[in-house]
Design a protein around this nucleic acid. Structure first.
Lengths: 108, 108
DNA sequence: CAGTCGCTTGGTAATTTGGCCAAATAGAAT
DNA sequence: ATTCTATTTGGCCAAATTACCAAGCGACTG
């Protein structure tokens, strides 16, 4: 793998990596419904504010969300709506996995 | 976040996590062209065989690829072709990131 | 049936991640 | 100005990830 190709893969994989945590994926789903401030997300997630803030930072650095400070709150929203379209395929993978599990059971 | 919701997010995030490594993403791209044995992928990646084998194992456990032993070789292939469709959105994110970078530069 | 080949697994060390607490910051309100 | 309030950052520690080497395993080959 030459270095250009590697760089490309690394850039892409960073996006996937950012989505590769349950809490972050949850927040992306919530943000799909509309913008939320950190305190709202903190309440929804049920973790320390600092933890939520760091997860949001990961999503922001990846370019998945953007933030805007208004008054005391910082509001986050999806920067690229198409992120949601990713979930369709993911669901297909999960369904196929489940079917295979079923098949294995019936086979036994 | 209730435990059912969390379980769902965790299941989905595992798929993203599996794609969240440059080498694994590279292999998925290669497998999109057709099945490859571990030795071919090892040559393409340019890492230790054991390293490549472990990455493939991560993809297999996630349900992204499947393997088939034929003779001495083990051939891997994509299990769900739609995985490729994920890349479209990822590219959009990267392009938007790049544009923003440009905008920042011009602004200064 | 001994040797080889392709791959996987176990061991280990270096690095990264994820969580909470505590401290710092920025802005609003009194 | 001082005091809140919402969020971010730094420190710390446990757990997970990644890479290589070495050893193991299963299936052809001579």
């Amino acid at each position: 793998m030459d270095s250009l190709r590697y760089a490309r893969c690394e850039a892409r994989s960073r996006i996937f990596k950012a989505l590769g945590h349950p809490t972050r994926l949850f927040m992306v789903e919530e943000l799909a419904k509309g913008e939320r401030c950190v305190c709202e997300l903190t309440a929804l997630v049920g973790a320390d504010t600092s933890t939520v803030s760091k997860h949001l930072s990961v999503l922001r650095v990846a370019g998945i969300v953007q933030d805007e400070k208004r008054g005391l709150q910082v509001y986050y929203r999806l920067r690229i709506p198409c992120v949601l379209s990713l979930f369709g395929c993911i669901e297909t993978v999960l369904e196929t996995n489940a079917k295979d599990q079923m098949a294995l059971l019936h086979q036994a």
